[in-house]
Design a protein around this nucleic acid. Structure first.
Lengths: 200, 200
DNA sequence: GACTATTCATAAGT
DNA sequence: ACTTATGAATAGTC
């Protein structure tokens, strides 16, 4: 019985597998292999890893240790990229909202006070700093908004240069593995108007 | 010469490598291996992959095809996770800010009108719906804020369940590879108060 | 960073 | 999904 049961594994060309079914099978097998390798690396070397794999059919498979999001956050954090940036902006917007709401409440209370005292607050305040402050505030918010949108666009278009990206094609698969480096810190911030003196 | 040159590869226990130097060497070798596997998967199956690896020394190494950010964006998008969520919230906050600013302007203009016409707007409006609407608006904004913060916390604490996260330890490394599935869509939204009728 | 015996991953075939 | 021969990755060593 010199007849072998299978031909065993054979070398394959490193290019897109054309046959749909084979491609799907290979995708599944190798995706599992990749995730296994990743989990081993986590265990052996104490690394934290996130892997996102999009199949050609646009399904997203994820591996994460300790979880996907925390690793992504660490990456985005080092990079002052979308998520963390948006997070801090959201908090700032929230603060601004609270201040504005406070202002509106204050205005309403002014009306209450006027009613109680019979004093013509609106007449006096018209020549007052009150309205100008309000205008300044609104103007500051406009500027903030523009800075935010501009900055958001910058970030959207910014290439993450030092990471290990590939415009992969069959000819450059080898030799891609020599220049990964740690990502640099960046702590650029949107400058916010100081509104303290405007608030009671 | 029965003496072999090396012992060759030997099986190792799947647990943290204690010797610092060995751990570092293994980390480098296997990280390169992982990235190579990933690039092969991209080529063979036309997948898009992002890998983030944090070394124990907190350096972040990244692999991405076509690039890290686009794959992360796709993941966050499918998941209505932090980034996109925050993005849409940011836009909503921006809208709210514009509406609020509009309101404040409107108030100011009311004062202008009153001066021109001599009409006591504030006296009439005090019994009017104007102030109540303002209160309702502020209340709605409070609720929005609370919903936002609650939702943000939920997202922060939510295990990305269908993804392949590991609280890795040596005993469960095998058998982890059976339940990766595509991430589900989520289109939960914060319900915003309708303010149309309140605005001029 | 190179070597090599060995383990591990996997392409095909079933 | 299972099997198996073979290709590939890598642990230990220098």
């Amino acid at each position: 019985m010199t007849q072998k049961k299978t031909m065993g594994r054979r070398k394959i060309e490193m290019k897109r597998i054309e046959l749909r079914k084979s491609r799907q099978v290979t995708f599944s097998k190798r995706r599992n292999g990749l995730f296994k390798k990743a989990s081993e690396l986590c265990v052996l070397a104490g690394a934290q890893i996130a892997i996102l794999v999009q199949s050609p059919g646009n399904h997203v498979y994820a591996f994460g240790h300790p979880d996907v999001d925390s690793v992504i956050d660490a990456y985005l954090g080092n990079n002052v990229s979308n998520s963390l940036m948006k997070n801090s902006l959201l908090e700032e917007y929230n603060d601004k909202y609270l201040e504005m709401a406070y202002e509106l409440e204050a205005e309403k209370n002014k009306l209450d006070d006027v009613e109680e005292s019979g004093e013509s607050w609106w007449e006096n305040s018209f020549e007052d700093l009150e309205i100008d402050e309000l205008e300044n505030y609104i103007e500051s918010m406009e500027k903030l908004k523009n800075n935010v949108l501009k900055r958001a666009d910058e970030l959207r278009n910014l290439a993450v240069s030092p990471s290990f990206d590939t415009n992969t094609n069959a000819s450059n698969v080898d030799g891609l593995l020599d220049d990964q480096v740690a990502l640099p810190d960046l702590d650029d911030q949107v400058v916010l108007p100081n509104l303290d003196e405007f608030l009671p």
